[in-house]
């Protein structure tokens, strides 16, 4: 238990992933779903860095985690722009309300 290894990080990441999945599946607020997605991406980042630290020793895991962080920022910017438009259009932010195909 005291020697921290790969498994510790992987289990933590698995927990983070499941929390993110639950949040994405059940929250009734589009921003909440975005927050869930961020949790899932963070879990992936932990996994990648842990593998690069404890297995390969190469830069690949860290570089991939770097790209994840950058892409998450881009994703959040686009998602918020979409949500603001959605809210302007429908007056709500419940993703279930957007079931019309015509604006």
């Amino acid at each position: 238990m005291l020697a921290i290894g790969l498994t510790h990080y992987l289990v933590l990441a698995a927990f983070l992933f499941c929390c993110g999945l639950y949040v994405m599946a059940t929250k009734r607020n589009a921003v909440g779903i975005l927050i869930g997605a961020e949790l899932v991406l963070n879990a992936a980042g932990i996994n990648l860095v842990a593998f690069s630290r404890y297995e390969t020793g190469l830069a690949d895991g860290q570089i991939a985690a770097l790209f994840i962080i950058v892409l998450a920022a881009a994703e959040a910017a686009i998602a918020i722009a979409i949500f603001v438009n959605y809210y302007r259009l429908l007056g709500t932010i419940d993703p279930d309300a957007g079931d019309r195909l015509r604006g």
Binding site: N29, L34, I69, A72, A73, V84, T92, D94
Partner: peptide, 30 residues
């Protein structure tokens, strides 16, 4: 992670929350 995620993305998210906060019938409870 601190700069981009906590300093950038999170601020954008909070900003989005504030812009869409008056949405009627926000039910976070599933």
């Amino acid at each position: 992670q601190l700069i981009v995620y906590a300093g950038g993305t999170l601020i954008v998210i909070v900003f989005g929350v504030m812009l869409t906060s008056r949405a009627a019938g926000v039910r976070l409870r599933p």
